[in-house]
Each structure stands twice: as C-alpha cells, then as structure tokens.
Nucleic acid binder design. Structure first.
Length: 261
DNA sequence: ATGCCGGGCGAAGCCCGA
C-alpha cells in the first residue's frame, strides 16, 4: 500500500490555509505533519482541510508553536506532548497512529526548539528537548513498527545541508551540540529519508525572508523525516517541494515528503 | 548583518523566528 507522507512548517496556519490547501491538491499526500500553527485548536481552519478529505489531530497554541497531523486515513491513539519531557508548556509534539488498509504507521509531527542565542536558556531548553525526544524515540523503536518522526528539527546535520557553513558555525541550528543531539537519534537506528535517496549537497528546506536569501539560494536543510528500520525498508522516494517557496505569501519553509510502499 | 522580512497581538511597537 503506497503512502506519501510530508512535513511542512507553515508559519501560521491561518495566514497559510489556502496555500497549504493548494499544495495538498497538487501533491496529494496521505499524511501531512504541520508545524508552527500559531493558532489555538478552536481557531484552526479545519473545514478547508476536511473538505479535501483529511482527518485532523491538533495540538495548537496561541501565538507560538503548535503542531498537527492531517491524514486521509483514520487517525487513532493521539498523544500530545513528549511523555519524556515533563511540564513542557510549549506545543511542539503530537503523535498518532495512522490506520492503513493492511497495516498501521505511527507518525509524529515535531517542532523542535530553535535555541538561539546559544549562550541562553533557550539553547539549554533545545538540548534538553532533543534529549527527551531521543529517549521517547528509543521507546517507540522497541515496537519495531513503521514509524515516521517528521518535522522542523531546527538542526542542520552537515555542511552539505547549508549554503554558507561559516555563517552558521556558531548558530544554535549548526552548533556541534545540536548536531550531536540529532545524530543521537540516527544512532538509535532512525534514518534520514532524504539522505537515503540522495547524497547531493544543496538540498534545502528553509530560506530566510530577509536579505534575498531565496533569490541567492542561501538556504538550509532543517526539516527532516526520520524513519524506523521498518519504514525505511519501504521507502521508495523522498523529495523537497522547493518550488512552493517561490509563490505568493510563502512560508519560509517548504514541504519535505517521502513515499513508502 | 541577530532583525534587513514576516507573523502575532492588538491597535503602536515589541516579541519571536532561524
């Protein structure tokens, strides 16, 4: 059963609802993980997505953060927040089981903290959050089932994933502590879907609104789909829908997707 | 070049993102 799953930081779902709906009609993913809703659940523009045939699992928040899972297949076992991070007051993690015709896949939508500046409590929060995510991922991997951890990780894994590495060297997204944190998830056995399909440099998912970053292709790759071995074994293709960044009123991130059979 | 854009909140200007 082929399934296409995508992740997209939309930078406000209320502003971006029509943009997201347009892309859903074009790309036809079975599952879309959203981040940075900046919206409480009761204000989520749900009918526009329900009309396109999607079920919704929401974990919103006013002004900041907020994550969701949209699925054409039934959604069950929804859980909100990382169970390994007690008292997190930010909506950054939602997980659910997607019921496919002959199997099921566990999916999470993740909005990992930015962490800048790196000498602040925000960076400490980022590192603690990654550590909690790793602990939870280790627990989920014990189920030995198709698992997709999708989201905005706010971590650049390697120099191939950033246009100007020196400019980002001391940024919280590229600091070695952040990279080690995300690598620790890979060391559990999770695989980066894009890197299973391509080793070419310059594959980016984010371009800053400022300083002509898009026009100069001054981008970074920080949105990732991490797959359990059971999901990675079914991977057929993965890609980044870069063209979306060139449209009117774009998010600064673009969708990243993978198709599994 | 760490606020150049863009969004939220709320009704001007500040907070935040990456």
């Amino acid at each position: 059963m082929p399934i296409k799953i995508a992740s997209w930081n939309v930078n406000s779902i209320k502003i971006r609802a029509e943009t997201v709906a347009d892309w859903l009609r074009e790309a036809q993913p079975d599952v879309l993980c959203l981040q940075e809703l900046k919206c409480e659940d009761r204000n989520f523009p749900q009918t526009i997505f329900e009309d396109l045939g999607y079920n919704l699992a929401l974990y919103g928040q006013k002004t900041y953060n907020g994550v969701a899972i949209l699925s054409k297949w039934p959604i069950s076992d929804i859980s909100r927040g990382l169970p390994t991070f007690a008292d997190d007051d930010q909506s950054r993690y939602i997980e659910a089981v997607i019921g496919l015709p002959n199997t099921a896949a566990r999916v999470a939508s993740i909005y990992l903290p930015n962490g800048n500046p790196p000498d602040s409590a925000k960076f400490d929060y980022k590192l603690r959050w990654i550590s909690a995510l790793r602990d939870h991922a280790a627990n989920l991997l014990a189920y030995e089932e198709p698992l997709i951890l999708a989201g905005d990780y706010n971590v650049i894994l390697s120099e191939a994933d950033v246009h100007d590495p020196e400019a980002w060297r001391e940024d919280a997204l590229f600091r070695i502590e952040s990279r080690h944190g995300l690598r620790s998830l890979l060391h559990l056995g999770l695989r980066d879907a894009i890197r299973l399909c391509s080793d070419e440099p310059g594959l980016y998912t984010f371009w800053d609104y400022q300083a002509g970053a898009w026009q100069k292709n001054n981008g970074i790759r920080i949105d990732h789909l991490l797959l359990s071995p059971e999901a990675a074994g079914r991977l057929r293709r993965a890609g980044i829908d870069k063209y979306v960044r060139g449209r009117e009123k774009p998010s600064d991130h673009v969708p990243v997707w993978a198709s599994l059979h």
